[in-house]
């Protein structure tokens, strides 16, 4: 499998990248880690005439925190996130999600920005990004803008990014006190993609009721979605087993579910419910175990 010929650009600043994008227009394509794009190029299902490799724009590689706001550069690799002590402390959902992506080699090279820009319907990040209510920073020569996770995923491999924009970073808030997070998925036995993946963030009140629940669902349909109905059932309620069941029951509500060789739409709907239930339960358990000073650590 060999790609079609292309011209290669390797900007070291965003400005250079924008310029290359402007010059190449629709014939150009940005590549970061390459783990979404290069396989498709090798199949010749994508054959950009110009490849703009943003992998050398060092400023996009950092993970940093300021006043409880965490910024993850688009070029941060899945492994970088998986191994980040900062994130394990402040937003453990991200390392936990990262650890479920592909395999070690893929995590070493693949980037969060690349994955989100590609928006594969079975990718893991979208679930976490939605559950964390992250903001996606898109920058172009025109300026920068922040896109809410909920507004970002439009359709199958289609995002709110404009053709001249580069996804530069993802911003999330540090996990508030009494919060638990969890990401669970059923792996496709070959590709490792999520047949269904569920990210849950649950914040409890002092009395143990659900102050806020946020659930992101990937793999089920053409794009990742926020399971709003699930969240509504839980909001303000005590997360009893019964309540979690009730909430999970509506996980697949209103979704147009995918169906493929490995899982029918009906089964995916079922998985969405089961995994939502399990992710919620795990998040609640962690929230209960977490004190305000010491957010829960991710379990292996």
């Amino acid at each position: 499998m060999i790609t079609e010929p292309f011209e290669y650009h390797s900007p070291t600043t965003l400005e250079e990248a924008w310029q290359a994008m402007a010059e190449t227009g629709a014939d150009g394509k940005i590549v970061a880690g390459g783990h979404s794009l290069i396989p498709i190029m090798k199949l010749r299902l994508a054959s950009p005439k110009y490849l703009i490799d943003i992998g050398r724009i060092e400023e996009l590689r950092n993970i940093r925190e300021e006043d409880g706001r965490i910024e993850i550069g688009a070029l941060a690799t899945h492994y970088q996130i998986e191994a980040s002590d900062l994130l394990k402390r402040l937003c453990p959902l991200l390392p936990e999600t990262a650890s479920e992506i592909g395999d070690v080699q893929v995590r070493n090279k693949g980037t969060i920005g690349g994955s989100l820009a590609h928006a594969d319907p079975a990718a893991d990040w979208p679930a976490a990004i939605l559950a964390l209510e992250a903001e996606i920073e898109a920058r172009s020569a025109r300026g920068s803008r922040s896109i809410k996770a909920a507004d970002y995923f439009l359709d199958l491999m289609t995002t709110a990014l404009q053709p001249d924009e580069i996804l530069t970073s993802i911003r999330v808030r540090a996990m508030p006190p009494h919060t638990g997070q969890a990401y669970l998925k059923l792996h496709h036995p070959a590709s490792g993609y999520a047949m269904v993946g569920v990210a849950a963030c649950v914040t409890l009140t002092e009395s143990g009721a659900v102050a806020k629940a946020a659930v992101g669902l990937t793999g089920a349909g053409a794009k990742a979605v926020r399971a709003v109905a699930v969240e509504e059932v839980l909001s303000g309620k005590s997360p009893t087993n019964h309540k979690l069941d009730e909430a999970a029951a509506v996980a697949a509500q209103g979704l147009e579910l995918n169906s493929d060789l490995y899982a029918s739409a009906e089964y995916r709907g079922h998985l969405a419910r089961v995994y939502t239930r399990r992710a919620l339960a795990k998040a609640v358990e962690r929230a209960r175990g977490a004190s305000s000073l010491q957010p829960v650590a991710v379990q292996g």
């Binding site: 499998m1 390459g34 783990h35 396989p39 090798k42 490849l51 490799d53 080699q105 090279k109």
Partner: peptide, 29 residues
């Protein structure tokens, strides 16, 4: 496998194991 699954092409690039079938040589400059 040519689809970054099998890992037969694994090499270390700057110390990180990567699948050399899913990377262009120019990216390793």
């Amino acid at each position: 496998c040519e689809s970054s699954i099998c890992g037969a092409c694994t090499v270390l690039v700057n110390g990180d194991a990567v699948k050399a079938c899913t990377m262009f040589a120019v990216q390793a400059n």
